[in-house]
Design a protein around this nucleic acid. Structure first.
Lengths: 231, 231
DNA sequence: CTTGACAGGTGTACAGCGTCCACCTACTTT
DNA sequence: AAAGTAGGTGGACGCTGTACACCTGTCAAG
């Protein structure tokens, strides 16, 4: 009896070595059932039968944990499906993203908030956007047109937030950003787009992307679409 | 000297009687300069030279304070301009909303977050939406079409968040909601729309508004718009 | 076979948060 | 004069994220 207990004690900390993945999973589960407000380091730790500070051996801090959760969720979005034409492929992908967001209602809020205060989107989001851009390119869109398209789609692409790339602001450069050539290798379409935008507006001060123009572009496209619905 | 000082002391708490408006103004100012994370009850109080709990005599709690701030900001949006046709009027109004949001970069996040967890938007937001619906109606849109239009415009109307009315969820009814007839008087267009939607989907379980359909409607309208841009 | 590094879990502590509660004080109303 | 009330005060509680020092088990090198 005593032996069993002791073994159980030993086991509790030995059997489940508490990996980063286990922390992330517990966090997602907790958020799923109690909303993002129920998500505290202490609660996650408690759920894992561990002391709060133990989490910090696998996760730098809470923000980094949120980033990890986002990455996990974005990974749930279906990859582009076959060769059905850009319109169908984009449509299916966006609907898949939406399903993911409906499964995790707290997610869009977290993504949005983290997006706003981070230098760059998380890697999985980057990959998602890159592949989305790739679909448009393959569908015959020019680089410039894809740029507009991404702005127009903004709020639909992940179900919210049209300003995924808020490069206009004066954020300090991300210290652990990817070196350019690796960036280009992993996210070729994003890179192509970014370079084109940066280049053809060289003279413009600041962002290299006229947010105001893009906003009005999207707005007018929407209004035109609505106008066509009038009898 | 002593007298002056004593007078100053007296004055500090007597001259500026710390109204709700002063609290709201201080809060907005603080958020404007330090972002929404710098906004704590204690900081606001400090800024006003007062003890934190003093604020609670003018504001129920922090959420209610955030609501008040939102209302103040939405009030900054230009009223509908003249009789230039629905398209122009909507366009100008949305651009005015955008300018407000650019003046207060933290605002969209606050509005969105508060929207998600509140039973109803704040009065000023209601008024804004009501008048926006009115513009569409006056422009010849049917009630049903306005409904679609509001969903399509969603992310542009206030610069974000297409799900302003997330009535699908199972929120407890707002205790201090307006009585129906007052609601109808103050927000006639919202009421008209809400009743029409509730009525013609009587048989459907739940929300009275098929969010999935609306999402796809908006998505397809956007994709069609993009398609027309292809050479 | 020992030793030392190191990965990983523990315990304590701190500053900051929102807000409940009891209190005091000045002013208004009867 | 008495009673009520609006509004500022002070203290406390429970919660948060996380810095820091510590301990322990595992494993590699001498």
């Amino acid at each position: 009896m005593v032996e069993i207990t002791r073994q159980a004690d030993t086991v509790r900390q030995a059997r489940t070595p508490l990996s980063r993945e286990r922390v992330l999973d517990a966090a997602v589960a907790l958020a799923d059932e109690g909303g993002v407000d129920a998500l505290s380091m202490r609660r996650i730790a408690q759920e894992l039968g561990v002391v709060p500070m133990a989490l910090y051996k696998h996760v730098a801090n809470k923000n980094e944990l949120l980033d990890g959760m986002i990455d996990a969720l974005v990974g749930e979005i279906d990859p582009p499906a076959g060769d059905a034409g850009w319109k169908t492929v984009v449509r299916l992908r966006v609907l898949s993203a939406r399903r993911m967001l409906l499964r995790h209602p707290w997610a869009s809020r977290v993504i949005e908030v983290r997006m706003r205060e981070r230098a760059a989107p998380t890697p999985a989001v980057m990959a998602y956007l890159d592949s989305m851009i790739g679909i448009f390119r393959a569908g015959g869109f020019s680089v410039g047109l894809v740029h507009h398209a991404m702005h127009v789609m903004g709020s639909r692409l992940l179900g919210f937030s049209q300003e995924l790339f808020d490069d206009s602001s004066d954020r300090e450069p991300d210290p652990d950003a990817l070196p350019p050539q690796e960036m280009a290798a992993r996210f070729p379409h994003i890179t192509e787009l970014a370079m084109a935008v940066a280049h053809d507006e060289e003279s413009v001060v600041g962002s290299g992307c006229d947010d105001q123009f893009e906003f009005e572009f999207a707005l007018d496209l929407t209004l035109d679409g609505l106008e066509r619905l009038l009898p």
